[in-house]
Amino acid sequence: MCLSIPSKVVKIDKELNMATVDTMGVQRDASLDLMAEGDIKLGDYVLLHIGFIMNKIDEVDALDSIELYKEIIEAMNEEDRQMAILEDDECPNRGA
């Protein structure tokens, strides 16, 4: 029951304090009761849990993480390349 889903806000009904969110193509209603007034805007990414928006997803931070992961993979690939060269250098059959 703790699984919550990232979703995008596509509609806001101020009167009812409800939002419509898109979760990978599926639209549903979510209450804004747990959010401060004016906190959620159209296009925001949010976390949806049992019919409520729990919080806004910090886009800058999400992008930072994704960037970090790319760098790690890049560094890893570079390390692998270096290893391959090193192994090749040390290969006793080299030049045979």
Binding site: S7, M24, Y45, I57, E59, A62, L63, S65, I66, Y69
Partner: peptide, 18 residues
């Protein structure tokens, strides 16, 4: 950022391996 990133990039096999 796209919604897809929030699913795919945090489940990416290469990142997990790294």
């Amino acid at each position: 950022l796209e919604l897809k990133n929030l699913y795919d990039d945090f489940r990416d096999g290469d990142t997990i391996k790294a």
